[in-house]
Every structure is written in C-alpha cells, then in structure tokens.
C-alpha cells in the first residue's frame, strides 16, 4: 500500500511545524524548562511525528519527506527520552567545595595508583642519579636546574628581593602551562592509561632527581622553601589529573563495545569534576609560585615558606578528605 502523500503532507505539516517551533525554542536555551501542559503537548506532537515517520518508512520510500521527519524525530527524541538528571545552573562554589572532593574520594584507588607511580618515579630518579651522576642532564630537562645547586642558591640569595615586576605575567604563564599539562594527563588516559602512567612516572623521576641533587648539595632548606609553597598544591593537583587519566583508561580497559560506552557515560561527569577542581588548584599554585616561591632568603625566611607550604598541604588533605561529607550523608 502507498499512502496518499499529498493528503498526508497537508494534514501533517501544521503539526510538524508546531513541533519544529517548539524544538527551536528549546534549543535556544539549554536550561529551559517546559510547563506541564506544554510538555504534554510536546510529547503528543513527538508521538504523532514518530508515527508519521513510521508510516512514511513503511508505505512510501519518499526520501526527502522521510529525512525531514527523521530530523524532527531525532531532535525531539533527545528531549523526550533524556533521563540523566538536569543539574540546573552551574554553581562554582558547590562544585569546588562538594562535588570535587567527593569525586576524589570516590575514586581513591586511582589516586593511590597515581601517587604510587609518582613515588616509584621519584625512587627511580634518585637511584639513577646515585648510580650515574652524568645522567643529570637527561633526568632533569630544565636548563636552570641542571647547574650546581649550591651556585644557584648563592645567586638567588644574592639577588633576593620581593616579587618582581613580571611576577603576574610569570604566574599567568605557569597557570596556563600547568593546566595544559593536567589536561594532557587526563587526555592520555585514552591510551588505556599507558600515557598517563608514563607521564606520572616521569614527573616523579624529575622530582626525585631534583630533590636528591639539592639534598646532596646541602641545600635542603632552600629546596623545601622553594618547592613546598607551590608544590604542596601543584603536585597533588597533577596527581588528581593523573587520577582522572587512570579512570578514563580503566573504563576503556574493561572491554570495548556497549560496556565501555556505558562506563564512559557514567564516568564523564566525574572526570570533568576532577579536572575542574584540578584547574582551580593549579591557578592557586601558580599565584603562590610567582609571588612567593621565587622569593628567597634573606627577603623571606625559608622557615616561613616551609611552614606556609606545610599548612597548605595539611589544609588540602583535610579539604579532600572531609569537604562535602555532610552532603554525602
């Protein structure tokens, strides 16, 4: 049987146009909500159009009309059948103070693995430097850290002064650079976590080699005073980015197909929460690094910087451990 196409179009067109108008209105504002009566009308129009599409598909093979109805049904289908909760307007404070720490805790296993990989890298970096001091250039890819630590400390302390005129610029560059590294750590999760694991391990190698180099030169106080103020936030932030990358890889590792797709759908909001929190921490770390970490004795006592860094680290641990627990209950 072939339907009377002309009559079919004449009768259906007003309803299809109404559905199209409603869809356009909805699509203009992603956070828009419909009143109950409007939602009922929308649902009726969707069902009628879907039924028309079924008739066109069954009783004619008219491709243009079918494509037109398919596009309408496809757009309305997403609106009608979406069951993932609407989260409403984005609230930055709630996101950072509740969603972020809760997500970190929920995936504590991945964070532990990220910490273990970094510590393993630290150990490897130290061991490599002990066994082969000539490997310093290969292990520490930053020109300003490849020289003699004692000489650097002497130079830094000689020219010690308050935050330089270019501190703001330096801070912005650090925040931008570190955020990109964090994004990269997450994104490398698509290599079934291998890329993220290598990145975490290699960060650990650099950290271990630098630490041992300064400790062996008797510059432990300088090292702690330089690294702790920003490192106590920056290093955990990168570990959290690594945690997100490991989770992403884990979701892909559990087998492909529909299972992996379902796992990724569930995981998506958590990855975004981890990376969003991580970006906020990195912004703070960049400010501290530019305005505090680069200021040395005698302008600023190392003890004060070390205490500041220690307080930050404890505050961060407490925040990640406790914040948002009441909301969980």
């Amino acid at each position: 049987m072939i339907i009377d196409l002309q009559r079919f179009i004449t009768e259906g067109r007003p309803l299809w146009s109404e559905l199209q108008t409603l869809l356009e209105r909805l699509e203009q504002d992603p956070a828009a909500r419909m009143e109950l009566e409007a939602a009922r009308r929308f649902h009726r129009l969707y069902r009628r159009t879907a039924s028309d599409l079924a008739r066109v598909t069954t009783f004619t093979a008219e491709p243009e009309l079918r494509a037109y109805l398919e596009s309408l049904v496809a757009r309305a289908y997403g609106e009608v059948h979406e069951v993932r909760g609407r989260r409403g307007r984005f609230r930055p404070f709630r996101f950072f103070a509740i969603s972020f720490p809760r997500t970190v805790r929920r995936h504590a296993g991945a964070l532990s693995l990220a910490i273990a990989l970094t510590l393993l890298g630290c150990g490897f970096g130290m061991l490599a430097l002990v066994l082969d001091p000539q490997a310093k250039e290969a292990l520490i890819p930053f020109g300003n850290l490849q020289g003699d630590p004692a000489r650097r400390v002497a130079e830094e302390e000689k020219s010690a002064e308050g935050p330089g005129l270019r501190a703001a610029e330096f801070s912005a560059q650090l925040a931008s650079h570190n955020t990109r590294i964090a994004i990269f750590a997450v994104a490398l999760g698509v290599t079934f976590s291998l890329g993220t694991m290598i990145l975490l391990f290699w960060n650990g190698v650099i950290l271990g080699a630098v630490a041992l180099d300064y400790i062996r030169s008797g510059q432990t106080a300088f090292l702690a005073g330089w690294l702790l103020p920003h490192g106590s936030i920056e290093i955990p932030a990168l570990l959290i980015a690594g945690q997100a990358g490991l989770l992403l890889g884990g979701a892909l590792l559990g087998g492909g197909g529909a299972g992996a797709r379902a796992r990724l759908r569930r995981l998506g909001p958590d990855l975004v929460a981890l990376l969003g929190g991580c970006a906020a921490l990195l912004a703070w770390a960049a400010l501290v690094e530019a305005f505090l970490s680069q200021v040395h004795e005698p302008a600023l006592p190392y003890a004060l910087k070390i205490v500041f860094g220690g307080v930050e680290l404890i505050a961060l641990i407490l925040f990640l451990f406790a914040s948002g627990r009441r909301a969980e209950g």
């Binding site: 496809a74 289908y77 997403g78 609106e79 059948h81 979406e82 993932r84 989260r87 984005f90 990109r180 994004i183 990269f184 997450v186 994104a187 490398l188 698509v190 290599t191 890329g195 797709r261 998506g268 909001p269 990855l271 975004v272 990376l275």
Partner: peptide, 23 residues
C-alpha cells in the same frame, strides 16, 4: 555534536570531548 544515543548533549560530554582534543 550529538549524544551517540540520540539523547541530549550533557555539559560533561561537551567538556570531555573538547579536553581530549589534546590527544
């Protein structure tokens, strides 16, 4: 850009697909 099941695009999907552009 659409959800692969034809459903509404979620903010987390938009963020994630753009972040992974790095790779």
């Amino acid at each position: 850009v659409m959800d692969e099941e034809g459903l509404k695009l979620q903010p987390s999907q938009v963020v994630l697909r753009n972040l992974l552009r790095a790779v």
